[in-house]
Amino acid sequence: MEEIRVRTTRRSDMAEITELVQEIVSRSGVQEGAAVLQSLHTTAGLTINENADPDVVHDVLGKLERLVPHREAFYRHAEGNSDSHLKTSFFGPSLTVIVSGGRLVLGTWQGIYLCEFDGPRERRVAVQLLPAA
């Protein structure tokens, strides 16, 4: 298992980590199998989405803010980041990506993102490679 550390720059942010994950796969020598990624935080999730057009990240974060605003009268969590916990639950804390030929299997426009919902801060993502039997 290895960890990726990512420094986010805004309260809500999507940091692409595809190349960092691919570096781990390449160093490992695993040719066939899977990479399991897990955010080690309750206010940061993971997703796969388009990485060619930065407007996609803008649109995703903008829509999320409208769907789950930072402040709501009914929120009770004392830290003031209830929205961050909700958003993370919607995205989920983990991903599994197939590895074939020593490369992550992703579509032409796909990238792996750490989704920050309570930043800016340093985040950690655990990566475990599962070689095919």
Rank of each mutant, 00 (worst) to 15 (best):
R7D: 11
S26E: 11
F90V: 15
G102L: 03
S39W: 00
I4F: 00
N51K: 14
V68M: 01
D118I: 11
E65Q: 10
H41W: 05
H58N: 12
A78F: 10
S94V: 04
N49D: 07
R123P: 00
L67P: 01
C115N: 14
G111E: 04
G92C: 09
R66V: 12
V60P: 00
A78W: 09
E19N: 12
M14L: 15
A15I: 15
Y113E: 00
P69E: 08
R7I: 13
T8Y: 02
L46R: 03
G29W: 02
Q38R: 14
V97K: 08
V36M: 09
R76Q: 13
V36A: 12
A15M: 15
V57K: 12
T108L: 06
F74L: 13
V68D: 01
L67M: 13
L129M: 11
L129Q: 04
W109D: 06
E79W: 07
P120D: 05
Q38I: 10
S100D: 11
E116G: 04
K63S: 06
M14Q: 13
R71P: 00
L46K: 03
S84L: 05
A133T: 10
L37A: 07
A15E: 13
S39L: 01
K87D: 01
L106G: 05
E50S: 09
T8V: 08
W109V: 09
V60K: 02
G62W: 04
T96M: 13
R124E: 07
Q110D: 10
R10W: 10
V127G: 00
H70M: 10
V97Y: 00
H85V: 03
V57A: 13
R123F: 01
T88V: 02
G29C: 06
T18G: 05
F117C: 06
R10K: 15
R66M: 13
I17P: 01
G101K: 03
D13N: 10
A15G: 02
P93N: 14
A15C: 15
V105D: 11
E32W: 09
S39H: 02
D55M: 14
